[in-house]
Computed example of a mutant assay.
Amino acid sequence: MNQNIEIVAHSGIYTLLAEQILNVSIPEAWEFFSSPKNLSKITPPQMGFYITSEELKQMFAGQIITYQIRVFPFLKANWVTEITHVKEQSYFVDEQRFGPYKMWHHEHHFSETEGGVKMIDRVTYKIPFGFIGKIAHSIFIKRKLEDIFSYRAKVLDRKFSVMNFK
């Protein structure tokens, strides 16, 4: 499978860009991605992803989602995100309020294209701990994020017959 994931750095702030074409309609894609309970289905099992929020319905602006993730083999972290923007069947944004990053801003965009739905993930993030964080990013954080989005692409490939492009 051709992976279309790119991470670039600008003054200590990183941007991950991932693009896919989903072989579904906008309403089908939106139904899946706008349900917070589906997050665990597209997260690698080794991350120990577990939603700790109350039962989650369809997302809405202002919604707080809490979960635990495994950041290292025997170290779990709590993560709190807020859905800050929603334009139904077009895009939504989640932002970290508390968690492992100094900043995390994740945009999810959906648009019709030939063959289905073009889905773009744009994650802008900053690593804590200054110079040590930069080293950690180059050694393993960047690779871990690429692995997470590659896993996600494979899951979506099986679910929606995804065709990657660029």
Rank of each mutant, 00 (worst) to 15 (best):
N2T: 12
E6P: 00
V8R: 12
V8D: 11
A9K: 12
A9C: 10
A9D: 13
S11K: 14
G12A: 05
G12H: 06
Y14S: 05
Y14K: 11
T15L: 06
A18N: 15
A18P: 02
E19Q: 14
I21E: 14
L22N: 02
N23W: 02
N23E: 09
I26K: 06
P27D: 08
W30R: 00
E31P: 00
E31T: 00
F33L: 09
S35Y: 10
P36C: 07
K37F: 10
L39Q: 03
T43G: 08
T43M: 09
Q46V: 12
Q46D: 11
M47L: 14
G48K: 08
F49W: 04
F49Q: 02
F49D: 10
I51S: 06
T52G: 02
T52Y: 10
S53V: 00
S53Y: 05
S53R: 03
E54G: 10
E54W: 03
L56N: 11
L56Y: 12
K57Q: 13
Q58D: 15
M59Y: 04
M59L: 15
M59W: 14
F60G: 09
F60Y: 15
A61R: 01
A61G: 07
A61W: 04
I65F: 09
T66C: 12
T66L: 06
I69M: 15
I69N: 08
R70C: 02
R70V: 02
F72L: 15
F72V: 05
F72P: 03
F72D: 07
F74T: 05
F74A: 03
F74I: 05
L75V: 15
L75M: 07
K76D: 10
A77M: 13
V80Y: 04
E82V: 06
I83P: 07
H85C: 09
H85Q: 15
V86M: 10
V86R: 02
K87S: 10
K87G: 08
Q89V: 00
S90R: 10
Y91Q: 11
Y91P: 01
Y91W: 10
F92C: 03
V93N: 01
E95I: 07
Q96I: 00
R97D: 03
F98V: 13
Y101N: 09
Y101F: 15
H105R: 09
H106W: 11
H106G: 03
E107R: 13
H108V: 00
H108C: 06
F110C: 00
F110G: 01
T113V: 15
V117W: 05
K118V: 00
M119S: 06
M119R: 04
I120F: 04
D121H: 07
K126E: 15
P128G: 02
F129Q: 05
G130A: 05
I132T: 06
I132A: 12
I132Q: 02
G133H: 05
G133F: 12
K134Y: 06
I135C: 08
I135P: 02
H137Y: 13
H137W: 09
K142H: 11
R143I: 14
R143A: 13
R143G: 07
L145Q: 01
E146F: 04
I148Q: 00
S150P: 01
S150R: 04
Y151W: 10
Y151I: 04
A153H: 14
A153D: 13
V155E: 11
R158C: 06
K159L: 14
M163K: 15
M163H: 13
N164A: 14
F165S: 07
